[in-house]
């Protein structure tokens, strides 16, 4: 009896895919609140520790961050193109686009890990060996707490996204999608773009705000 339950409550495939997309949107709404709480705490702490946050921001690697931003935005563009192709029934192009998305995503994760490696090397992880001793070392530590929590969660989301992407690619490769039926492509695309948007908020919070001062 187990499996009939996953589809038999819907009257048509369109009914089913519409409902699933609703579910994905709602899930993303919960994610907005999840990251929203982080950004709120981040902003409040910056307010109390402007000096420490500014000093910390100057020790982040804006070049890596910027390259990563470009990579991620391009990956979403590739994904959107893939979606447009499958809407016309072109599975081959879909596969090409999604593979590009995946490669860019992997490049992002690698660069991010490299950046973390440098950060650890410079003793920027909060704790007893913390390297910054400016006017507000406590504030700088709090900045790096948010930095690691925020980028850590983002990487986890990226890994989940890459897993989903692999699943979609596999199914596309087996010819599961057509111009009329490609729910998974659309749903995973929403998720992928969302993770992209989270990064677009993280980027200024980490690298830009306070840096010039």
């Amino acid at each position: 009896m187990a499996d009939i339950h996953s589809t038999f409550q819907y009257s048509t495939p369109a009914h089913r895919s519409g409902s699933s997309l609703d579910g994905m949107w709602l899930f993303l709404a919960t994610e907005v609140l999840f990251f929203g709480a982080l950004f709120l705490a981040w902003t409040v702490s910056r307010h109390y520790h402007a000096a420490g946050f500014a000093e910390a921001a100057r020790h982040t690697e804006i070049s890596l961050g910027t390259i990563n931003t470009v990579l991620l935005v391009t990956s979403s563009l590739a994904y959107a193109a893939g979606l447009a192709f499958i809407e016309q029934g072109d599975t081959r192009r879909l596969l090409q686009c999604l593979s590009l998305t995946g490669l860019l995503g992997i490049a992002f994760v690698c660069l991010k890990l490299l950046e973390w490696h440098d950060d650890f090397y410079e003793h920027l992880f909060p704790g007893s060996g913390f390297a910054l001793h400016g006017p507000d070392p406590g504030g700088a530590q709090i900045f790096f707490s948010f930095y690691f929590v925020g980028t850590g969660l983002h990487i986890l989301h990226m890994l989940a996204g890459l897993g989903l992407l692999a699943w979609v690619i596999l199914r596309a490769w087996r010819g599961a999608f057509s111009s009329r039926s490609h729910l998974a492509v659309e749903a995973v695309g929403l998720y992928w773009s969302f993770v992209d948007v989270v990064w677009l908020v993280l980027y200024p919070l980490i690298y830009v705000v306070g840096r010039p001062g």
Partner: peptide, 25 residues
Amino acid sequence: YVLATPVLAMTLLLLAFETVFRVGV
């Protein structure tokens, strides 16, 4: 459920981070 629970989740995460790494959020 959908709109409030994620905020608690993040709060607990920051609490756990503070407890483990002894940094002051």
